[in-house]
């Protein structure tokens, strides 16, 4: 019985880790360029473009306004199309990814907006190309903010991932719901909640440390 439970925890832990890793990977791979695109197409920036700004901005806002549990269901056909199945942790990671990208893109954009406009102008006055400015000014200057933003994203994803059970995604949160909530096993619920608290604390701690190390201010 105890061994079963330990096994369940191990499995759940791995499932959460798997789902989140995929979502975080894509959040960075797609969210960072998207966040930069949102920033550099703003008014007064070098790729100022109202159309891109509004279209991308609207799509990001629409996805962000859909409750995750609904997104999870709405995306079932899409998940089936790209993975061939809509069940399991990998399938759940598709909706987590779709939720994570616009979430992180906005945080990336926000950290870019924190950069002093003058620093970008000074780079322009050196004759730097937009590409060089993005690579050597925007990214390094926004790095601490982007790390802090990623920390927030990961923690939000951890809480979203609890709903992955709907599509058989599993994971720690799902374990808490199945055993703790449906079966009234309060001890299991308590343990999973404690594990989640520790996880969040740990992620926040590591995130803060990394952000601080990246900041040279």
């Amino acid at each position: 019985m105890l061994l079963d439970l330990v096994n369940e925890f191990g499995k759940a832990f791995f499932e959460t880790f798997w789902m989140m890793s995929i979502a975080v990977l894509f959040a960075v791979l797609v969210g960072v360029p998207l966040g930069i695109a949102l920033f550099v197409t703003r008014e007064g920036m070098f790729f100022e473009n109202r159309f891109v700004q509004q279209v991308a901005g609207t799509i990001v806002n629409i996805i962000r306004s859909i409750p995750f549990i609904i997104l999870l269901v709405v995306l079932i056909p899409f998940t089936k199309l790209i993975l061939g199945t809509s069940m399991g942790p990998t399938a759940a990671s598709v909706s987590l990814t779709v939720a994570a990208i616009p979430f992180y893109a906005r945080l990336v954009e926000a950290s870019l907006r924190e950069i002093d406009r003058g620093v970008i102008e000074a780079a322009e006055s050196c004759g730097a190309s937009p590409w060089l400015i993005m690579k050597d000014v925007l990214l390094p200057e926004a790095k601490p903010g982007m790390i802090a933003g990623l920390t927030v994203t990961i923690i939000s994803l951890l809480s979203y991932s609890a709903m992955a059970g709907i599509v058989g995604g599993g994971g720690i949160g799902d374990l808490a719901i199945r055993f703790g909530y449906y079966r009234f096993q309060n001890d299991v619920m308590l343990i999973t909640v404690i594990i989640l608290i520790i996880l969040v604390q740990l992620i926040q701690f590591i995130g803060d440390r990394l952000a601080k190390a990246a900041s040279k201010k």
């Binding site: 002093d116 003058g118 102008e121 000074a122 780079a123 006055s125 050597d136 390094p140 990246a214």
Partner: peptide, 12 residues
């Protein structure tokens, strides 16, 4: 060009 508030890249 140089500026009142220097505008250096703080991360570099």
């Amino acid at each position: 060009m140089i500026f009142q508030h220097f505008h250096l890249i703080s991360a570099k």
